[in-house]
């Protein structure tokens, strides 16, 4: 019974865990974690698509710089990218809010990985599809838009899901630059109460699990809806 009663610390701080000081202060906790994940997810979807398309370009002066950029980002730990943005962006733009810094870092990092999923998805479509499309007079970008991407994107969905699940968990690194998302809020409460680290970090782990599981389930449902009739 005493173990269960220790979880009272969660109940006492539940609102703070969920939304931080909102609406009296900035959004924090789970709310901010979701905000970081969703925003970076949407941005890096388009960033990854763009980088992926650039990296399969037939023009070397487009594909080589994009591959170089992708490899540099992929060769760095996410934490380094966050630090990098944290010091670089204010140097360029003057002040730069930490939340946006983290979104930028997550977007750059995830886009680099996404681009290679996009690249593999495009290259996985049989060569004959592009040939058939351009043979009817479609320009390459039209063939890409109407023929290759619709087929490729569907094949990319499982890898996208993987990447975005990683992204949800990666938002926890934002705590290093003082962004009050779930992990940051958890450490704050832990520092204040001192006595319940196990309970607090079990709770945080469960919340991350629920977020990731919800996202995986959502995308599985979406995948089913996007399926077109395949060979029997």
């Amino acid at each position: 019974m005493s173990i269960l009663s220790n979880f009272q610390v969660i109940a006492d701080n539940f609102t703070y865990f969920m939304i931080g000081r909102y609406p009296h202060g900035p959004l924090g906790g789970v709310g901010l974690t979701i905000y970081l994940a969703v925003t970076s997810c949407i941005l890096s979807f388009f960033g990854g698509l763009l980088l992926g398309l650039l990296s399969v370009s037939r023009h070397r002066w487009i594909s080589l710089p994009s591959m170089a950029f992708i490899n540099i980002i992929r060769g760095m730990p996410l934490l380094m990218v966050i630090f990098w943005m944290y010091f670089l962006l204010p140097a360029i733009f003057g002040t730069f809010p930490e939340v946006r810094t983290v979104i930028m870092a997550l977007t750059f990092f995830t886009s680099a990985y996404m681009s290679q999923i996009v690249r593999a998805g495009i290259e996985g479509i049989p060569k004959g599809q592009m040939e058939a499309a351009i043979s009817t007079g479609l320009k390459r970008w039209q063939a890409m838009l109407y023929i290759i991407l619709p087929q490729g994107l569907r094949n990319m969905i499982p890898s996208f899901v993987n990447q975005f699940v990683s992204l949800i968990k990666d938002t926890s690194l934002a705590f290093i630059v003082g962004v009050s998302e779930l992990t940051h809020v958890g450490t704050q409460i832990n520092n204040r109460t001192m006595a319940y680290p196990t309970e607090i970090f079990i709770f945080i782990a469960v919340v991350y699990f629920i977020l990731c599981f919800a996202f995986t389930s959502l995308s599985r449902w979406l995948e089913g809806r996007l399926a077109w009739r395949k060979a029997i």
């Binding site: 049989p126 004959g128 599809q129 569907r154 077109w228």
Partner: peptide, 11 residues
């Protein structure tokens, strides 16, 4: 152009 493998758009 007509291909050996048809190359219809499956989607």
């Amino acid at each position: 152009f007509v291909f050996q493998q048809f190359n219809l758009y499956p989607h």
